[in-house]
Design a protein around this nucleic acid. Sequence first.
DNA 1: ACCGCGATGCCCT
DNA 2: GGGCATCGCGGTA
Length: 180
Amino acid sequence: MARDLLDKVLVREVDGRVMWGRLVEVEAYLGPDDLAAHSRGGRRTARTEVMYGAPGHAYVYFTYGMHWCLNFVTREAGVPQAVLVRALEPGPEVGRCSGPGLVTRALGIDRALNGAPLAPPDLYVVDDGAKRRRVFVTRRIGVQGTGRWEKRLLRYAVDSPSLSRPLSRGPVRRKRVKTL
DNA sequence: ACCGCGATGCCCT
DNA sequence: GGGCATCGCGGTA
């Protein structure tokens, strides 16, 4: 799901204004077994509740005292997995989206959209037929102290100047970045 | 280029 | 009360 979302367009409409950006960087969080996921160990709290619901809905959480992060719930009810939206190539009139906190700030996404369906008119994804670029996979950003999970290649990105962080240090080298 | 750190508040133990 | 799926700034190279 994370891989398939790349190069598709995230659209946000608010007060009749249409904003969009192309998805270039996402991360998969694989539920109870994934020690880096909010739903690790099957945690089911007020915050994680929407991940236990139907797929195709937004999971929006607040972090570091100031940032909202947008996720897509991906699996059937009862399986709390999600894809974190980390970066977009911004459309016209949309500010920089090179990081999960910037994505939500640029598109006006906050707690009000937690649990919202990913469907018009508020927030949705469209396939505009753009050519799919080569997909790179790396370790997830900001994931530490989770044993093997911090090494797993669950960050999916296309090579773009709008990434939150480079695919690897220096020029992209085949040896350090797994290609699909 | 890399590193350290402060801001700021909710979540969960 | 500690930590956090972050960001931008200011310092050192």
